[in-house]
Simulated scan of single mutants.
Amino acid sequence: MNKQSEPTIHDIARELKISASTVSRALNDNPRISLKTKEKIKAVADSLGYRPNTLASNLRNKKSNTIGIVVPLINRHFFSSVISGAEDVAFKAGYNVVISQSNDLAAKEIKIVQSMFSNRVDGLIISIAMQTSTFEHLKIFKKKNIPLVFFDRVIPEIETDKIVVDDFAGGFRVTQHLIDQGYKRIAHLAGLQDLTIYSNRKNGYIEALRKNGIHYDESLVIISSLTSEEGVTAVKQLMKLPNPPDAIFCGNDTTALSAMIYLRDMGIRIPQDFGIVGFSNEPFSKVVSPSISTIAQPGFQMGQKAAELIIREIETKERNPQTIVLPTELIIRESSSRKGSQ
């Protein structure tokens, strides 16, 4: 064997003076091959540095045993929790996962998804990027009958399995909590309204105001991509209003933190003068001072469910699209507990 070339089953067979078919069966754990023979073959395979040609095998079997997962931002606790839950189920079922992030960029998401399609993933689990507005790169999965599961940020126009949380109820609960704490002018820093998660959170906010007889003031709602910098820009804009707010419901914890730091630096007391609630329960929200009230989402459970759905579709070929709605939890901390701090 040429030392520069990859060892093959024929090299193993030559070494042991047996047939290549016996080697192949042994490496595939065929019950017709004795345990003693399997161990001999494996030992030689290891010594030669043999690597199975998984790609060739996948092409023959028309199955890669690989699931693609695309998230907007891996460094967000919610998305990393979803990945962890999906990988947990996939690994136990004998699947590998390929993970990538779009950085909330539509162009990058399109390239990633096209690459996963070309590399023949058996199915795709995805939460779309903030910028994504066209969906042909995802519709091809439906056209080719490749399982597709959306989570969190979903596309209503593509009929497939979807897993979301009750964002409307989350938005309502946050706003009601702030009202119960005695805040009178509650602003909302919302995400882009093309995404249903953010429009649902905003609608929950509006409904809570309505139920409590509070006028909905459009000047108190600022829509953005919810970056840290945009959180500061938004709160500056709000505080310049003739009648500024005394509380903010932020669309995520990142903007809640940046808004809180800005207000605190301005000498505004949190929560005595101003209440803040975020969304997603990022780990930092518990350890900053004051700690940030927020909405917790069951990310790990969402990932597990997404993997279960896609594996079922891969293995049964059944397509019965469903939308699963998981509950959220309001976690009350220092940033909004005005009555407890007085």
Rank of each mutant, 00 (worst) to 15 (best):
S102I: 09
A106C: 12
A90K: 01
F141S: 02
K92L: 09
V70P: 06
T132C: 13
R76V: 11
S80E: 10
I74R: 09
Q101R: 07
T132F: 15
M130R: 14
K111A: 11
V97K: 02
F141Q: 01
H77K: 11
D104A: 01
K142A: 10
F78Q: 09
I74V: 10
S102M: 08
A90Q: 02
F91L: 09
G85V: 01
K142W: 05
F117N: 09
S80M: 09
N75C: 12
G85W: 01
Q114F: 00
F78P: 05
N119V: 05
Q131E: 15
A93L: 12
G85N: 02
A90L: 00
H77V: 07
S81Q: 06
S80F: 10
N119W: 06
A93P: 00
K142E: 13
F141E: 05
F91A: 08
R76I: 07
I128R: 06
A129F: 15
R76S: 12
M116S: 08
K142I: 13
V113R: 08
I83S: 00
R76Q: 12
L138E: 05
N103H: 12
S100P: 14
F135Q: 07
L105C: 11
N75L: 10
I99A: 06
D122N: 13
A129L: 14
N119I: 06
S100H: 11
R120N: 11
L73F: 07
I125Y: 02
K108H: 00
D122I: 06
I125N: 00
A129Y: 10
K143Y: 11
I128H: 07
V97E: 03
E87M: 09
N119K: 10
V98I: 15
I126W: 04
K92A: 13
D104N: 10
S127C: 10
L73I: 09
P72Y: 03
S127E: 04
F135W: 14
H137Q: 10
F78W: 07
A129S: 15
I128C: 07
A106K: 14
D104R: 07
S81Y: 00
S84D: 11
S133F: 04
K139H: 12
F141T: 04
Y95C: 01
I112W: 01
A129K: 14
S115W: 00
F78K: 08
I125S: 03
L138T: 09
A86T: 06
K142G: 13
S118E: 06
I125L: 00
S115D: 05
S127D: 06
D122T: 09
V97D: 05
V89M: 02
L138R: 13
Q101W: 03
I125V: 15
N103M: 10
S118T: 04
D122L: 11
V98G: 05
I126A: 01
N103V: 08
G123K: 01
T134R: 15
K139D: 10
S81D: 12
L73C: 08
F135P: 03
A93G: 04
S133W: 04
D104K: 05
Q101H: 08
E109A: 02
F91I: 00
R120S: 06
V97T: 15
I126V: 15
K111H: 11
I110K: 10
E136D: 15
N96M: 14
R76A: 09
N103C: 13
K139V: 04
A86M: 12
